[in-house]
Design a protein around this nucleic acid. Structure first.
Lengths: 327, 327
DNA sequence: TTTCTCTGTGGAACCCGTTCCACATTCATC
DNA sequence: GATGAATGTGGAACGGGTTCCACAGAGAAA
């Protein structure tokens, strides 16, 4: 593979001149330009990005950590984030941490090893102190990682309220509420607190089903739903994350109960799968594109070394009415 | 940031000794080890991977090109591929090409610029000749890219046959067949040819609905389904890719036709969304995990410079019976 | 004519880890 | 005591692009 020195030799100029030509920086005469272009073509020369990266100590790569890309929320997030990163000239390194906090650590270490310039983490397993040690650009999606790390999230409290009010307006009297494990410190718990609060306020009975920590797979969701029916829990309204709500709705339909007439559903996240089921799911929709855009905007600014006033970016959620509720 | 020379100086040894210590290659005395370890700790030293990469001319990064990660087929593929790459010590760079063949070209160029060691492409837009120019490790998912580039695909012919036979056994007399654009040369067309062939053989009428090239978004699928109903096309069986079949089934249900009693559905791909709808979709299932594993295995071998006998790896499909067919 | 500025150029030094070679000990073997 | 192998070490050269500095010629201003 030809190097810049080969090009310089062939063109009969110095390496500095070739470098200036390549980067369009400083003076290069027309004559030198022509000779360099010619030599480059003859040698089929492409600059080695690695050497550039070494000098500049940056790669233009951002690591995006998600528990699982096949989860629709994260796959949409990754989709938008990649597009947005591309707009900024960044490349995306994708890391599925699954349940291994080891993988998470490894990717954080890539910051120190100069492989990535920044990390956007949508993962909730590693201890906060691991993050605090790192003085490099990190943006957290929906998680508090200490003072220094900016967070992008949605207004979960509002989301909880919207869901609760919708079920109340629809006349539900006994609501099944699937909630995430409280072990992790994350803004998303707000929705559960607010949901319960509004329900209590209106004196509506809720049955809380607490999910295990960090289990997002369909298999587990199905188990949870089966468990609910096995226990004979009764309900006329359900609130839970998309896939769980869908799983629960399908089981409800299979048991010949009418949706939305007898049982109402409101799901959380509002990913595309909620529009793919029949009846369409009424959902509190997270602005995933906005989350991706804000995450990228923040990481870009952090890398640029600029100060950011907004340590927290909170986006609005919205209720998308489907046919699993009447009103 | 401390460099290896700083460590060497602090430890009172040569850089070569530190390097040998770091890589566990060659001789390093216990005494030197202790001094180096101490110096590394004091300086909070981490080797700069970029410098290593420059020397070795490799980064351990594989680019994975997909049209769209939010498509369930590709998001599952990416999910498995990432896990498999991780097992081999590779990192994944993800590229959503959307419809921009420009992005595709750019990522291929990263091979020449030494940013990635290999490319796994699940994208079908760039001209084959662009690929032929590149003498670097490339693996194609479900597409012919000339003699030199190995392909990983499934037995689509078998898939077409399974789908056709299932609809025939279920007594369908007039089948709606959604097929991909024939413009692109890809193994996946085989399923359509075979499907039609088997149908003709059994003298079953089919209505072929040809989809536009490279449009995989839900919006378009919905349009296509609406179009079908608008035109008043009649059918008692449907074959199409997952999301399309689901979209069509939902519309069928909304129009008060019974599934599977009056209309049968068989979808292609069998991603998780087919198990998320009610009734569950009968599907020809692609072994996505296997595709990912084989792609990674091949790229790994190509990078290792090993010869590969199998230019084509063809995996088996399987019919997963759901409740959109009776038999 | 002198002085200054602008254009243009070559190449050493740098970024940082790796490899290889020359050289020095130590210990076992003959 | 001589020979050889194993152990151990330092540092120059290398990978390839970038930057900066010294230097030179041309044209303009004084």
């Amino acid at each position: 593979m030809a190097s810049i020195r080969d090009v310089a030799k062939r063109a009969g100029v110095g390496v500095g001149t070739v470098s200036r030509f390549l980067n369009d920086s400083g003076y290069v005469s027309e004559e030198a330009r022509a000779k360099i272009e010619d030599a480059m073509k003859k040698l089929d020369y492409t600059p080695n990005e690695l050497a550039r990266n070494l000098y500049h100590k940056k790669t233009g790569i951002i690591a995006v950590l998600v528990p699982n890309v096949s989860n629709p929320f994260f796959s949409e997030f990754v989709d938008y984030a990649e597009a947005e990163l591309y707009r900024f000239g960044f490349k995306m390194m994708l890391c599925n941490t699954r349940k291994e906090s080891n993988a998470e650590l490894e990717y954080l270490d890539m910051l120190r090893r100069h492989i990535v310039d920044g990390v956007i983490t949508g993962v909730h397993s590693l201890d906060v102190k691991e993050y605090k040690k790192i003085k490099k650009p990190i943006v957290a999606l929906d998680r508090y990682l200490g003072e220094d790390i900016p967070v992008v999230a949605v207004n979960h409290k509002e989301g909880g309220r919207l869901a609760a009010e919708t079920l109340i307006e629809n006349g539900c009297r006994k609501v099944l509420h699937f909630r995430g494990a409280t072990a992790v410190e994350s803004p998303y718990h707000e929705r559960h607190y607010e949901f319960e609060r509004v329900m209590r306020q209106h004196r509506i009975q809720t049955v809380c089903y607490e999910l295990q920590w960090n289990r997002l797979d369909s298999g587990y969701y199905r188990e949870a739903v089966e468990d609910v029916f096995l226990r004979g829990i009764e309900f006329d309204g359900v609130f839970g994350v998309d896939r769980l709500a869908i799983e629960c709705m399908n089981e409800t339909i299979r048991r010949h109960r009418k949706v939305p007439r007898e049982v109402k559903f409101v799901s959380y996240d509002g990913t595309y799968i909620t529009e793919m089921v029949e009846p369409k799911m009424t959902a509190v929709v997270q602005p995933i594109e906005g989350l991706a855009r804000e995450s990228v905007r923040l990481i870009h600014r952090l890398i640029g070394g600029r100060v950011y006033k907004d340590k927290q970016v909170i986006l609005d959620v919205e209720l998308r009415k489907g046919n699993t509720t009447i009103i």
